[in-house]
Design a protein around this nucleic acid. Structure first.
Lengths: 233, 233
DNA sequence: CAATAATGTGAACGATCGTTCATAATATAA
DNA sequence: TTATATTATGAACGATCGTTCACATTATTG
């Protein structure tokens, strides 16, 4: 994953897939005490369990999703599912920590490559948008099901949330210090950016209806930030 | 409810309470086929059921909230609760339609009193913010539990959502036509406003941590909109 | 091929859920 | 006061849930 991958969604998606597969292998190896089958078998079945859990969870909520629902959707027996998880809650823990790690890896690999703070800011915005585009089901799932997380996952999620918050605030802060940005409220600005990013994955139907793809949405945000952050002379 | 009420939160809250009590009476009278007790008794107990249902629902989700939980929280027996609702789902229908009506009433009473489109826009923003401040638990509940709504409530919610969307877009549209606003994208702008409003009730802890009250949050949005919508000369 | 290991199955268990209703308790009217 | 109407109770029922495990099936090894 590098800056070039963020040129367009197709390249990004390709690179992200590689990153995700690596992370999946790590996940299976880390949870060998829970997963009672070989790594090969787990890599074949676990992703499907994740996918369907998110899919059903996004329509009826995870709490209302029974393991019998999941069994039917994945075409696996109840017993088979229980060779990959120790409990229903455990599924959430594995699933969320997997995606959180992939996302953090992505940002670590991108870093802050530009000298111009606006370039860095827009790059971060684009990376977030692309990530939520590719992993939209999970992003939606994680947000709307945040109530049902146990303490372990909440700790993970909060840590990740703080990191991304800091990521934006630091860029804005350095932009203001360098007098490249207007002296706006740092907290409000980063909150605003996050709210706009969230809207993208929380209300996909809205943007689909208006035929707005991720790149044109990015341009609108970029335009807003340019107007808002350009220093007044 | 009039423009003066929007001067400060205290006045708004007072006027809103009157409006809500009226609506509660209407609700009870409308549902006399379901509610098996006198109006007087219903007015005493139903609000408590609503309040506690929202409160528990906001911590563990409505689906995971059992009627036994609700029974304990309201200090009412299971049977007593069932003299006010016909089913668990029915509780949601009554609850949501009540709040939706109160909110629509509020906007109907405010209308578009100003000649300057920016004044109207900011008034609408403030009304939304104040509403979500006073009814924060319900706003949070309605958003995060939207998955579990049945078709009847979804229809209600979508209609209400469309109305408020149109409300903002019309103001922006007329502002642009009158050349008082820059020629921004109308859809994006109204989406942005709604995303910022949503952030206020979806992440109350964030703003509480930063000691930002509803009035200072309003000022930040007003500042952003002024910068974004002021026509370039 | 047979023997062993790995993987898959789904009936069964106890817990909890929404909902009902015979009955009790309380308030109102006569 | 007594009689009647209103309101409140919570045990009980059938359905569904997460989870287990004795067993069946399939794949791998020798």
């Amino acid at each position: 994953m590098n800056i070039q991958s963020l040129d367009n969604l197709t390249d990004f998606k390709r690179d992200l897939e590689v990153l995700e597969e690596k992370q999946f292998l790590l996940l299976v190896e880390t949870n060998q005490d829970i997963i009672k089958v070989s790594t090969k078998t787990a890599l074949k079945n676990l992703p499907k369990i994740f996918d369907e859990a998110i899919k059903i969870g996004n329509t009826k909520g995870f709490n209302a999703t029974s393991l019998r629902d999941l069994s039917q959707a994945t075409d696996m027996s109840l017993g088979k599912i229980y060779t990959y998880i120790s409990a229903k809650d455990d599924l959430l823990l594995m699933l969320h920590s997997h995606y959180i790690k992939v996302i953090e890896d992505t940002f670590n690999q991108i870093g802050l490559p530009h000298k111009n703070p606006m370039d860095n800011l827009l790059l971060a915005v684009k990376a977030h948008l692309y990530l939520s585009q590719v992993f939209r089901p999970w992003f939606y799932f994680a947000f709307t099901e945040s109530k049902h997380l146990n303490k372990k996952i909440i700790a993970l999620a909060k840590e990740s949330e703080l990191k991304s918050d800091l990521y934006f605030r630091n860029i804005i802060q350095s932009g203001i210090q360098a007098k490249r940005f207007a002296a706006v409220d740092r907290n409000f600005t980063s909150s605003m950016i996050k709210a706009l990013l969230q809207d993208w994955y929380l209300k996909p139907w809205k943007y689909a209806e208006r035929n707005i793809d991720v790149d044109s949405y990015f341009k609108e945000i970029a335009n807003l930030l340019t107007i808002y952050l350009t220093p007044k002379d």
